[in-house]
Amino acid sequence: MATPQLTKNQALVMGALTHSDGPLSAYTILDKLRDQGFRAPLQVYRALDKLLEYGLVHRLESLNAFVACACPHEHEHGVTAFTICEGCGQVTELQDEVIEERLSTLARAQEFKTEKTTIEIRGQCKSCAI
């Protein structure tokens, strides 16, 4: 899939996420982009919806926040996993074909059609665990 042409708002939201040190809520993105003309949460949510559809960002359900995809050129993610540090908030995206295949096999055995799988692993990163 070719990289989609982003609208101005989508590009601004993507830039905010790409240059962030951690996940951002929609309201934090709105605050960061007020000087660029963002006035309402709906502007952010519309951009995020498209970026999610394009596979360029991920939503972290437990944080109600968003991160830029670590590998945006691989839009075929079946399973996306994240480690989330409880100490510093660092988020790392993980991909593992073995886990993806195993979960897919388990779902098929239950005659369950999977649409999206996100795994969030919470704990302490190496720096915070010391």
Rank of each mutant, 00 (worst) to 15 (best):
M14S: 12
K116D: 06
H75N: 15
P41W: 11
L24I: 06
L51R: 04
Q90C: 07
A70C: 05
L33W: 00
V67R: 01
F82T: 01
E100P: 06
S62Q: 08
F38R: 02
L48M: 05
E61Y: 11
C88E: 03
R39S: 10
A107V: 03
A109W: 07
A26M: 03
L17F: 06
R122G: 10
R108H: 15
I119P: 00
E74Q: 14
G78P: 08
V57P: 08
F82K: 02
P72W: 06
H75L: 13
S62D: 08
A109P: 05
L48Y: 02
E76S: 10
E74G: 12
H19Q: 13
I84L: 04
T92N: 11
S20V: 01
D31E: 08
L17M: 04
D21H: 15
A65R: 01
E93A: 00
I121V: 13
E97T: 07
R108N: 15
T105P: 07
S62E: 05
A107L: 04
L33V: 00
Y45Q: 15
T105Q: 15
E97C: 13
F82L: 00
A47H: 08
T105A: 14
Q36Y: 13
C69I: 02
R108A: 14
A40G: 13
A70R: 05
A65N: 02
Q10F: 01
H73L: 12
L106P: 01
E86S: 07
G123Q: 06
T18H: 09
K50M: 10
S104P: 08
A68L: 00
C85P: 09
C128Y: 05
K8V: 13
I99V: 15
P23E: 14
S25P: 11
V79Y: 07
E53H: 14
V67Q: 03
G55N: 05
G123K: 04
T114N: 02
P72I: 00
T92G: 08
V91W: 03
K8Q: 11
S25W: 05
E120H: 06
E120L: 04
D49M: 08
Q110Y: 08
L60P: 01
T80V: 10
S104H: 09
A16P: 04
A11K: 05
